[in-house]
Structure formats: C-alpha cells, structure tokens
Design a protein around this nucleic acid. Structure first.
Lengths: 204, 204, 204, 204
DNA sequence: AATGAATGAGGATTCATTCAT
DNA sequence: GATGAATGAATCCTCATTCAT
C-alpha cells in the first residue's frame, strides 16, 4: 500500500457544496464550448476545467471522457436546429440559416458535420453519428421533392461542403464565407441567426 | 526479459557521411507522408524518424519544426499541380482532376486548402499560405472570364468546399464524394488522377 | 448523451435518520469484505461505499481511515477463531481448520497473519498487531507442551508460512495448498470450515 | 494541433550524452531494487527515476512498463541461483542458502516466489512465471529422489511457505525467521549468503 | 553529418478527504 | 446523521527538443 501524501492542512478553496453541481456543469459546458472553439476538439481537458474555475475532478465527475464533454457541447447546437425545425411554418432556408449560425460559432460543430458519414478515424465516436443524423433528419423534413439537394446524400454533402468553407478569424468573416458557399451551391439560405430556445430543459 | 533498447557494447551504425544527407531527407519526407496520412498532422515526429530509419537528430537537422516537415510533404502535391498547369493545352477541368486526386490521397493536403485564407489558429503558418497561393495561381491561369468561379475568391472557396467534403475511409470513397461535390457546384472536373512529374528535382 | 451523474432537480434520497446507522455500518463492512477480497487491501474506498449503497461521507463517519475499515473486516475473522477456541473440548487441529478456512476466504486475513511480528512497513498499524495477538492467544491455549510448535514463536511462524502458501485462483485451490502446507509442517489440521457464531454482537 | 508549450530557454541539467545510457540503466535497476524492497512492487515508478537521479523519460526508454523494471530487478536474483546451481559439487542445501539470502534481501523476490503458481491477479505477468520456473528448475536438479520435498509441487510449496515467513524490519531478523522456517520444515539449509557472479554479463 | 539517449513539461486520470446541504 | 459533489495532489505516460559522442 503506497502511503498517501495528502496535505489536508494546507489551505484549499472551500468546498462549496452540492448546490454548485448544476452550476459547475453549466460552467464546464460553457468553458468547453469556448475552448473547443478556439483549439479544436483535441484541446486539453485541463484547460476546460481551468477556464470553468473548477478542479479537474469535477470535470471527470460530470463527464467520464472527452466524448461526453464534446457531446454536451454539440447537443446544444443540434437542439436549436431541431427546435427551429418544429416551429410552425419553418422552411429549409430558415433552418440552414440557423445551421450556418452554429457553424460560424463553433469549430467543434463544424467538425461534427464535416465528419458526417466518415468512419475512418478511431475517434469517430457513435455519438457524432447520432448527433449528425439528428441534424439530417431535421433538415430533410423540410426538403421539397424538387429541391436541388433532394437526391440521395446531396443534402449532407452540401452541409459538409459549407462546413469546409467556414474558416476565418472572426465570426463575421466566417459568416461571409458560409453565405458565399451556399450561393455557389445555388441554395437559398435564410438569415444567419441563433434560435434561442430559452432556458435549457431540465435534463441538461 | 524485454530486449534492451540500446547496445551498450555494440558498435553503433557507422556514420555514413554527407552522401547520406539527400537520401535521408527523401526518406524523411516519404515517411512523413505516410505517417501524416495515417495519423494526421499531429503524429509524433519521432514516429517519422523511426519509419525513415534515422535518428531524431537527423529530422531536426533537415526540418527545424513540424511545419517544415509538413511543408515538404505538401510541396510535392503542389508541384504536381503546377506541372500539370504548364502542359501544352492544359484546361481547368484537368487541373481540378489532379487537384482532386491529391485531396483524396492526402489528409494533409486537404488541411492545407481547407485552411486557405484563414489566420485564426496559432499554427496557421506562412508556408501554408504560400503553398496555397501557388495552387491558386496555377488554377486561375486557366479560368476563362465567363467561368462561374471567375469572380473574386470563389475559386478557392469552391476548392475549400470540396476539401470539406473529401472524407471517407477509403480513397475510392473519398473520390466519389469529391466528384459529387464538384457536381453540386456545377463545375466540370476531369479525370481524377496523379500527374507524375518523373524524378523529383534534387532541390527538394 | 451520457446519463447525468446528478439529479439537479430531483429529490435526493431522504435522510433515513439515525436508525440507519447500524445498518449502514454492517453494509459497509460486508461491502469492504467483498471489495478487499476481490481487489486487495488497496482497493479504492469509494468502491466500498458504492457497493454498500451509501455516500462516501458515511464511510468516513464510521471509519476514520482505511485501517479501521480493514480492521472491522478482520475482526470478524478473529472473532470466529476465538469463538471456536472457547467451545467445550476444542482442540488445536480444529482451530487450525477454522483458521485455515479464513485464510482461504480472505486475502486480507492472509495479509494480517503474514505480517505478524513485522513493523517495517509504514502502514503496519497497531490494530494488525492486536488482532494477530488475539489469534495467537486463542491458538496457544490449546497447544500441548509436547507439540512440535510449542517452542517460542514457532506457532505463529508456522501460521505465517501457511499464509504464504495460500495462493490460487479459487478457494478450493487455496484450500488444497493450505492443507499441503500443514502436511509439510507435520501438523495435524482438522476440517477446514467456518465457525459461524450466529448473529454478530451489536458492538461491531 | 495543440501548441507545444516548452520553455527551452530555462536552465535544464545538461544532456550528458549517450555514454550515460549503460550507467543510467544500472542506476535505474539499483534504484528499483531499493524502492521495490522498501515499498513493494506497486511503488511509484517516478520514485525509482528520482532515486536513480534521472528523468522519467529515461526510465521509460529503458523499460517500457512496470513489468520490465521488475523483471530486470528479479533477473539478477534468479541468475545468482542458477549460477550457484551449476557449480561443481553444488548441493540443494547450498542453493537454498542462496535462495534464502535473496528472499531476505528483496521483498520483490519474495513476491515472485510467493506468487508461484498463482494466476488470479490480473497483473500476474508471464515473466513472473518464467522466472519462477527457472528457480524451480535450478533447485529440482539437485533434489535427490528420497528428499522429503521430492514429491509433486512440494518443493515450490515449501519455498512459498518460507517466503511467507520472511518478514521483519531488518535483514538479520528476516534471516532468523527464514532459517527457523526451514527448520520447521525439517529441511537442511546451507549458509545464507549471496553468490556473486562477478561482473554482469554484457546483455544486462 | 549522424546517432539516439537524456530531459522534463504537460496531459489524462484516479482517489483520499472535506464539507455544504 | 446522510448525502454525494468539490477539490487537487499524485501517478502514469508521451513527446518535443537538446546535445554529447
């Protein structure tokens, strides 16, 4: 038995109690969103914990692995698109606007859709496929039969193409490129905007 | 017992003198191409040296940093496109075919063109811009004034979009997606093939 | 998405009040017995709390440190041997059978007797000495003056030797080795069996 | 690509060059022998590197995993017993004396023989079995047919029993217990001493 | 010029322990 | 008295980079 070498007498930040749990989880997701956006999905998890202002253990308590953190971040993006899709009178152009907004916000979301249909990398995890499929379903429901992307996998191929174009130092620059990309595809895209769903459903 | 990793009493491989230098450099580039293709641009540099059969120091002698290794790998791709561009009677469709071939071969090349015009990431290195600019020049020279991609930065935007679509487990799958992507853009693309320039000029 | 590890909005399990205390302690000891048997004395304490179905704090309330958990587990083993020793007509061979049964059941008990008389390791805790001494006393009372182990510390040395031999993947295998070990020592050992003392006295 | 965060300008101890390799390996084995003896085979590998006065990476260069370090330590013990076994006129009692000397020196060696024949723990590694088998072979060759341990697995069972008895704060104390243990088994044991084989064979 | 060992910072992960509720 | 989240030290391991030979 290796002797533990704790120094419990040192000053450590006070345990703020279980009330912080939900708050911490939100802080972690927000931090992960920023860190992943800045450094990609390979960013150190410790950077996320640090930015969230919590210990590393808290991150591991809430998310057992990198995939769960990423999933939690992307989940929010997907949820907004799904929410936009079920609104009365929703049209494809509008959905693509919301989709595009998220593409310009989150490098991680770009990576998700960019990888749609790919199984090459060992870290292509099932959750990515599942999230990506939810986006596809939301969009496809609003795709008229005569639409130029109606055929086969053209819809998600176009999304991957636009994702590939969404690069640039600022959100505005990325948005410009995204809109140009849709234009080159001859696809109408509505206003690029978030679709805020209000307070998060209680499941988190 | 595990085989010792060193040979304390053995003669080390003899220094093969300056004649080896060019050979070693070629071996490093070839190894880097394979390793980057398999594990992406984040692969350990030590893996490249190992596969090339040289010490780590040799890698650092030839390439001061990761960027220059990557650049050397991409250089070859760019050179083929440039070579194809100066052939008598070359046309844009043919060049795009060669470009597309490289996109399907090399994840690293995809990254290069995908990142065209981006300066956000800290590892966006000048060499990427330079190489990317060379590709653009080679293509633009064959772009007729009435071509749908003639305007502004549409040409490289389209290339970035196709790059974004080139994903998949096998080269054949990636090629299928790339061809579909050009089709969605309404751009004619010639046969997807390498343009072998014969023995490489010794400058590297 | 991974199931959330907390229930921010759910009611937490109701505090079941002081009546639970004794029940929780028993559950912890039972859990510790299993966990220590499976993973050795270095097993995570959190695993014990989890298996007992209580929070980590409960474990720390009942047992201030790892040593006291281990001690509580071993206490039961020792008590059975003491109980067997005070039975009318008890003989050494029978006691050694009970002792051997516990050796084959509990890796932790093996460690206790194996370490008898040792003070080298920093985690050699007083409780181990005390428990071990109780075993010695119970046995020695039934050691006739002419017995081959009657001299000095030979008795507990023999016990340590048998403990050292009690290894094997299954209880049956361990029992075979233990019986052979006693045979090599020329010591008669009775049937290898538990000596159930009925419901444990509430003191624990 | 995560940006590397090295600070090469900071003072670091000078690279002492490849000449140190053999020296470092020896230092690591010596350090491992001490650390394993003090804290058992679960001791932190970092403690070994620290005691050897080398960086952690050096340890991993020489030994890819914990098993190789342990193996290197135990290899020396086994080799001495094998060497003693092939000496002209070697007898079992003498070999057991050498064996016993190593048991009193090294907790790790105790663990090796103690575990002989056990496959329960997931970290029961093949090298342990192989080394243990070499000890058995060396001893068995000198076991006359009429010897009390000649039967079946009694030989190694006895060794395991003595290993189980070899505990105590000082080498002298451990030796006393070991000798008493052999006496209880009725087995003659020669002088407890090392069998120095002189400079290590060049393979390390 | 080549070799490959040394170096240690950094990231992932686990777990003992505390403490707000 | 129960609960289980928070905390961060410690360990394992990898790799970029330097430099003696």
């Amino acid at each position: 038995m290796v002797a533990p070498l704790h120094m419990p007498d040192e000053r450590r930040p006070p345990n703020q109690g279980p009330k912080r749990a939900a708050h911490n989880r939100d802080a972690l997701v927000a931090a992960a969103r920023e860190v992943f956006a800045e450094h990609g999905l390979d960013a150190p998890l410790s950077a996320i914990a640090r930015r969230a202002g919590v210990g590393q253990g808290v991150l591991y308590r809430h998310f057992p692995d990198r995939a769960s953190v990423a999933s939690a971040v992307l989940e929010e993006n997907v949820r907004q698109i799904e929410a936009a899709a079920v609104v009365e009178g929703a049209r494809l152009a509008g959905l693509l606007g919301v989709l595009t907004w998220h593409l310009t916000e989150s490098a991680a979301f770009v990576g998700l859709l960019h990888a749609h249909g790919v199984v090459g990398r060992p870290d292509d995890l099932p959750y990515a496929m599942a999230l990506s499929a939810r986006v596809e379903r939301a969009l496809r429901d609003h795709l008229g039969p005569g639409h130029p992307l109606a055929c086969g996998s053209d819809l998600m191929l176009a999304v991957a193409m636009v994702s590939g174009a969404v690069t640039g130092p600022t959100r505005a620059a990325r948005e410009r490129r995204a809109v140009s990309a849709w234009r080159l595809l001859g696809v109408e895209v509505g206003p690029v905007r978030a679709f805020d769903t209000g307070p998060r459903p209680s499941t988190g």
